[in-house]
């Protein structure tokens, strides 16, 4: 872990007021992110990973959301910050790459202009300098014939190219933190590899920190140094990527790892499916949210909520009353 902390998240809780009742999408999440570090946030739908990333960004729908806790980015508090203060952060301190490149680009504005805008509004560049820099950025994200593509509209680009443009826009303000929310979901395998390599490369080259939010363990396995595993809005396990994969203690982490098929296994390998489905956030069980699906659950799990406690390795935490023995957590 690096010495300086860029992002400090403490007890972040995001509650939505819905017609069906109060919905706690993120529940008391805390972690630190060092400079130049890459962190993976992994979870299934309803785990709160996307809401968490939006909370870190300070993106909230206007009504019916209550955020408590603290998100400090380079010492600046994001929770409760004014729109104006947040606008100062966006682009220059933190930028986001969304899942769907089609909806995160304005369809009626040329892609070059969309990069220009960030440069001119955020960095106060003049027209000519912004244009030159935009083309440079397009080249950096691997768009061939960048000068020509500068004048292209999003619809004339393929999905992979569009996501490269989104990355270019995110990089325009030279942010210190890049938040990528499912950046490759919906892209083809070979394009996904290209985009992930690109993110890797620019992160190293520009010395950014990165948070990679995904449901796909394959995406984070070799590209992040630390992992946060989320379930029902809470962190259930966190540690170095290696420790989480090889020495996980929380049964949910293991279930997640073992339920996804692997290319290295022979065909017709029986999958260890987790029974049931992700919990209803409006009607969470009293104890551990994973207890109803867990093979090791006891009465205590059903009545009392486990909190994060340290494992043997430094920085490795898990929330479970009946943790797996270390030996059982080997990669399958």
């Amino acid at each position: 872990m690096s010495d300086e902390t860029l992002l400090r998240v403490r007890g972040v809780t995001t509650v939505f007021d819905t017609p069906q009742g109060r919905l706690t999408a993120v529940d008391g999440v805390s972690f630190d992110l060092g400079a130049h570090e890459s962190l993976g946030v992994v979870g299934e739908s309803g785990s709160g990973k996307t809401v968490l990333s939006r909370t870190i960004m300070g993106l909230q729908p206007r009504r019916g959301v209550a955020v408590t806790g603290s998100v400090r980015l380079n010492g600046t508090e994001v929770v409760g910050a004014s729109e104006e203060a947040k606008r100062e952060l966006w682009g220059r301190q933190v930028a986001m790459v969304f899942q769907d490149p089609m909806t995160s680009l304005n369809p009626v504005v040329k892609v070059g202009k969309q990069i220009d805008e960030v440069l001119r509004v955020r960095l106060g560049m003049d027209r000519a300098a912004a244009r030159a820099r935009a083309i440079e950025l397009l080249e950096m994200v691997g768009i061939p014939a960048a000068a020509t593509r500068y004048g292209a509209y999003p619809h004339s680009l393929s999905g992979g190219m569009r996501q490269r443009v989104v990355v270019a826009i995110a990089l325009a303000g030279s942010p210190q933190l890049l938040l990528a929310d499912e950046p490759t979901t919906g892209l083809d395998v070979t394009i996904q590899a290209q985009i992930l390599n690109l993110l890797d490369e620019v992160q190293g080259r520009l010395g950014m920190s990165m948070i990679l939010v995904t449901h796909d363990l394959g995406v984070v396995a070799t590209r992040t140094s630390r992992l946060v595993v989320m379930y029902a809005g809470r962190v259930v396990e966190t540690g170095t990527t290696r420790d989480v994969f090889a020495r996980h203690r929380m049964p949910y982490t293991r279930a997640l790892l073992e339920s996804s098929p692997k290319i290295s296994n022979p065909s017709h390998t029986r999958l260890a499916a987790i029974p049931g489905r992700p919990p209803n956030l409006l009607d969470l069980p009293a104890g551990c949210a994973f207890a109803p699906r867990c093979a090791y659950a006891t009465d205590r799990c059903r009545s009392e909520r486990p909190v994060l406690e340290p494992a043997d390795e430094p920085g490795h935490l898990f929330a479970c009353f009946n943790p797996l023995p270390v030996a059982a957590g080997g990669p399958s």
Partner: peptide, 22 residues
Amino acid sequence: LLGAALEADPEAPRRGEVLEGE
């Protein structure tokens, strides 16, 4: 295609080169 596939294993070696273009 197989080289680009992601394996959920941090120890897995980066395989093959990435297919360029679309």
